[in-house]
């Protein structure tokens, strides 16, 4: 009789945790819907809900259709897709490397993308999709370099993070140096690759980033089962039957691909990959990697930051990366302060 009672408890406890995960994702989805609706209606040209819906389905005033379909909707979609990619990638980095500070910003992978793009822009005069490819290559190269320097008979998390921090400084310095040497009119185009923006992602590029993110997410789902054992440390993971190095390589490759893809379109949007998983994990609070919740949080965070950057900041339209930086940095400090207290 008592056995039955505890058995229900184990199943019940798991159901409670699952409900909580679903709730967090639903909440973030709601935030996306509210912020997205707001972003559709508010702007230089204010639209009524009726006009917006008509515009979205291609009916109504030509100007409205253009504003909705070519300007506002793609920007919302871009923020959601890119934010989700950053959030998911950050969660993968943090759980795989067992370090809450591991994120593409800190590891220099985002700055690698910036460096690739800035080099392409200033030295080679590239633009468009080729320039995005340069950013992708930059992120990939930095990840590979970190890998080669950090690998010593297996991947050691702390060495990976420290080598990454070194590369972040190196790439940022090179970007700054390139900008200092650039002409004034060129430097404006470079800026976007250092702060990140979703204002110019549309059409084929948006479709590419969205499809790529979707495909990578499916791949993540396929390997995500190893995250539970991996979060217990290498020895425990191996004892539970996980091939630790292979699992880690696979997960990090997917995370790097997600970051490279998102950064190649939007530039390095500061702190989303670092902060979104931290928020998601805190909300879900089950000791898991909170992958889906992190993606949803990343999407919500990026969209809200972009809307805020367009409308809320003292009449200045700021790129999304500036807003996430302004919000993310204090949050990071708060996180560090409270974590410190808790661990005592």
């Amino acid at each position: 009789m008592t056995t039955d009672a505890v058995e229900t408890t184990v199943a019940d406890l798991r159901a409670v945790r699952r409900r909580r995960r679903v709730l967090v994702v639903a909440g973030m989805t709601l935030v996306v819907l509210v912020a997205g609706t707001g972003a559709l209606l508010v702007g230089a040209a204010g639209l009524t809900p009726g006009q917006a819906i008509a515009g979205a389905v291609g009916l109504g005033d030509k100007g409205d259709v253009f504003i909705i379909q070519k300007l506002r909707l793609p920007r919302i979609e871009a923020a959601v897709v890119v934010g989700a990619a950053f959030g998911l990638a950050g969660a993968l980095f943090q759980s795989t490397l067992r370090n809450p500070l591991a994120s593409p910003d800190i590891l220099g992978i985002s700055s690698g993308a910036s460096l690739g793009a800035v080099t392409g822009l200033l030295a080679l005069g590239l633009s468009g999709v080729v320039l995005s490819a340069m950013a992708f290559a930059g992120a990939g190269l930095v990840a590979l370099a970190i890998w080669l320097l950090a690998w010593r008979k297996g991947l050691h998390s702390i060495r990976f993070v420290l080598v990454g921090v070194g590369f972040a400084y190196l790439c940022s310095s090179l970007v700054a140096w390139s900008m200092a040497r650039a002409e004034e009119n060129e430097a404006a185009g470079v800026l976007i690759w250092t702060v990140g923006s979703v204002s110019d992602i549309r059409g084929d590029q948006l479709a590419l980033v969205a499809t790529g993110t979707l495909v990578l997410s499916v791949a993540v789902a396929a390997v995500s089962r190893t995250q539970g054992p991996l979060s217990l440390g290498d020895d425990n993971a191996r004892s539970l039957g996980v091939g630790v190095d292979a699992a880690r390589i696979g997960t990090l490759l997917l995370a790097v691909a997600l970051v490279a893809l998102a950064t190649s379109a939007a530039g390095p949007i500061a702190f989303v990959a670092l902060v979104a998983p931290a928020i998601a994990r805190r909300l879900v609070n089950d000791g898991g990697a909170a992958l889906v919740a992190s993606a949803a949080t990343g999407a919500a965070l990026t969209l809200v930051a972009d809307v805020a950057g367009q409308h809320a900041l003292l009449g200045v339209a700021a790129p999304v990366g500036i807003v996430t930086g302004l919000v993310g940095a204090p949050y990071l400090l708060w996180l560090l302060a409270t974590t410190e207290k808790r661990s005592r």
Binding site: T9, R14, R98, S231, L240, N285, D286, G287, G288
Partner: peptide, 13 residues
């Protein structure tokens, strides 16, 4: 143990 993980969840692993 990772932050926040509960007893039943850890044992389930």
């Amino acid at each position: 143990a990772p932050d926040g993980v509960r007893v039943a969840e850890l044992v389930s692993r």
